[in-house]
Design a protein around this nucleic acid. Structure first.
Length: 206
DNA sequence: ATTAGGATCTTCT
DNA sequence: GAAGATCCTAATG
């Protein structure tokens, strides 16, 4: 039997290159989690690239720590970190082992499992806000620190990244990263133009 | 619509 | 002791 295209995952080679290229190409791909509560699938609509010791905004800027060890590891693994004493955020590790970099997944559009996502997010968020913002996205998917270092490239993983239809450059908004205070001008934030699930479109006019 | 403050972990000063 | 790859709520124009 030929492999079922529905089971395809992005291979490690997809992630084994600079994170800004990976980030751009992740737009339109989907993330899928499988837990006892059920399956949730989101389409990636917003990402940010982070590099390693040459990127002052990166967790790996000062070299490896216990927390950032995974960023130096295998491409295609999940880097999940805890922030502001409260929230989990999901990254996908890029570049070959030994070089730190990752893509922060900042927002998604829930394609399947909205009921499961809502169990985790509560009744208040609108559909567009269910997985909008990095901590909200991780929460909607049910991802927390126990998912750190998960291999997303295996078709048997509980966390998978699947290819999507190609997104033309005309549909991609490129700009500075959000919520950082160093390297604020580096244009490594990528989002789908006009998508209501993007975490901070907050522009009048557009 | 915009702003301010709280929650309270990890890392660095 | 302070800041941080955040989000929610309450108060204010």
């Amino acid at each position: 039997m030929r492999p079922d295209p529905g089971d395809a995952t992005l291979p490690a080679s997809f992630f084994a290159r600079p994170s800004d290229s990976v980030a751009r190409d992740l737009l339109g791909c989907s993330l899928e989690t499988r837990t006892p509560a059920g399956v949730v699938v989101v389409r990636i609509v917003e990402v940010e690239a982070y590099a390693g010791e040459d990127d002052p905004a990166s967790h790996a800027w000062r070299g490896p720590t216990l927390r950032t060890e995974v960023m130096y590891g295998e491409p295609g693994r999940a880097y999940v970190y805890f922030t502001y004493g409260m929230h989990w955020c999901l990254n996908l590790v890029c570049e070959p082992r030994g070089r730190a970099s990752a893509v922060l997944v900042r927002a998604g559009e829930v394609l399947q499992g909205e009921d499961v996502a809502r169990l985790r997010r509560g009744p208040k968020p609108t559909r567009a806000r269910l997985a909008s913002g990095p901590a909200n996205l991780a929460a909607a998917l049910g991802v927390d620190g126990e998912w750190n270092d998960t291999d997303t490239t295996s078709s048997r993983s509980r966390l998978r990244v699947r290819p999507g239809a190609a997104v033309p450059d005309a549909d991609v908004v490129v700009g500075p990263r959000v919520g950082i205070s160093r390297a604020v001008d580096t244009p490594w934030r990528f989002s789908l133009s006009g998508n209501p699930c993007v975490s901070r479109p907050r522009r009048a006019g557009g």
